[in-house]
Simulated scan of single mutants.
Amino acid sequence: VYYVSNRVKTIDEAEARVLEAAPEARVGVAHGKMSAKQVEDMMMKFQRGDIDVLVATTIIESGIDNPHTNTLIIEDSQRLGLAQLYQLKGRVGRGRTQAYAYFMFPGERPLTPEATERLTAINEFQELGSGMRVAMRDLEIRGAGSLMGAEQHGNLSSVGFDLFTQMLGQAVAEARGDAADDLAQSEVNINLPADFYLAEEYLPEVDRRVLVYRKLACAMELAEVDALQHECEESFGSLPQAACNLFDRTRIRIRAQRLGVSSVSIANGRIIFQGLKCSRELTLKLKEQRALVYPKTEKVAYPLRRDEAGAVAQALSVLELAGGDDDPEE
């Protein structure tokens, strides 16, 4: 039996409680303030079966493999994180014997909402291979879900999800020694006044939401975006406006990369396309729509109409006009 008490200063009291409950048990203690030799000796005794109950801190959460151990008891489990609880649970059930894990918490004090969610999650995900689902729930409980929603924080708020993902990919490529020039050249900065996210009410499962975000961030073909949108609509119904904007933003990014556009933004009531090379025919079409075309700087300033289409739809229509209505890769 593992008995986890994660406070070194009160671990002797925990040992006394175990001995009071089971006087016949052979009890040992292991914690981080013991020397490495002492901890090793105690673990060897436990592995040989010289100790029945090991009272320990979370020092046992990794690197311990005792197939004969089949019971885990954690006191004050509401103090531990979900990942810690899941890791500790993996210390038992490593052999052929049925294993049991008990997560104890004080009944006289109310649990915080976060602690309740953690304990509910550890109780819910009991089947094999639940690590990914536990990790996603842990992120959701700690607030990472809001990074993908309307409320964003930190670097993600500053640059947006698409650009953040591209920057991260570029950093990984540089760390691996790959050529990062192509990544930098294809980077598109999209700064349009609209919401770009999948609402929790539309797609409740955080792991599914993150999967959609990842697929959109990695999409390089318009057909991929169309197929993913169709899949979402088939499974969850019509897209809300913020989700439509999210998919159209990916279409803008793909078309802009093909046309060599480096940025799409709003300034002085116009949509500014930087790096858009215009043929004579395209220039005439844009000027008919009261756009300003600057051939030397490869800049187009398109008038932002105040209608129901919105800035995202208008920006996409301009890029469709510049690149043709058909996807050249299809």
Rank of each mutant, 00 (worst) to 15 (best):
V1M: 13
Y2H: 05
Y3K: 03
N6S: 11
R7F: 14
T10I: 10
I11S: 09
E13G: 09
E13H: 08
L19P: 03
E20D: 12
A22G: 03
V29W: 00
H31L: 08
M34K: 02
S35F: 08
S35L: 05
A36W: 02
Q38K: 12
M43C: 08
M44R: 14
K45I: 00
F46L: 11
T57A: 06
I59Q: 02
I64R: 02
D65G: 05
T69I: 11
N70W: 03
L72P: 01
L72D: 06
L72F: 07
I74H: 02
E75V: 12
D76V: 04
R79Y: 04
R79G: 04
R79P: 01
R79D: 10
L82G: 00
L82P: 03
L85M: 14
Q87P: 01
K89R: 15
V92F: 08
V92A: 09
G93V: 06
G93Q: 03
T97C: 04
A99H: 04
Y100P: 01
A101T: 04
G107V: 01
R109F: 03
P113L: 07
A115T: 06
A121Q: 04
N123Q: 13
F125T: 07
Q126I: 12
L128E: 14
G129C: 11
S130I: 03
S130Q: 13
G131K: 10
M132V: 12
M132Q: 09
R133E: 15
V134S: 01
V134E: 00
A135P: 07
R137Y: 02
L139S: 11
L139Q: 13
I141K: 00
R142V: 08
S146H: 13
L147F: 11
L147S: 11
M148Q: 04
M148T: 10
E151V: 13
Q152P: 06
G154C: 04
N155E: 14
L156C: 12
D162T: 02
F164A: 15
T165E: 09
G169D: 12
G169Y: 05
Q170C: 09
A171E: 15
A173M: 07
E174R: 12
G177K: 08
D178F: 08
A180V: 14
Q185V: 05
E187S: 13
N191T: 14
N191G: 10
P193W: 00
D195I: 05
D195F: 10
L198K: 00
D207T: 08
V210L: 10
V210W: 07
V212N: 01
V212C: 02
V212I: 12
M220F: 04
A223H: 11
E224S: 14
E224I: 05
E224Q: 15
V225L: 06
V225D: 00
D226L: 04
S235A: 13
S238G: 07
I252Y: 00
R253Q: 14
R253A: 14
Q257M: 15
S262M: 05
V264G: 01
S265K: 15
S265G: 14
N268P: 00
G269Y: 09
F273V: 10
C278E: 03
C278N: 06
T283G: 11
L284F: 05
E288P: 01
Q289M: 13
A291R: 08
A291I: 01
A291S: 15
Y294G: 06
Y302S: 06
R305C: 11
V312Q: 00
Q314M: 06
A315F: 02
L316V: 00
G323H: 02
G324N: 11
P328W: 07
P328M: 06
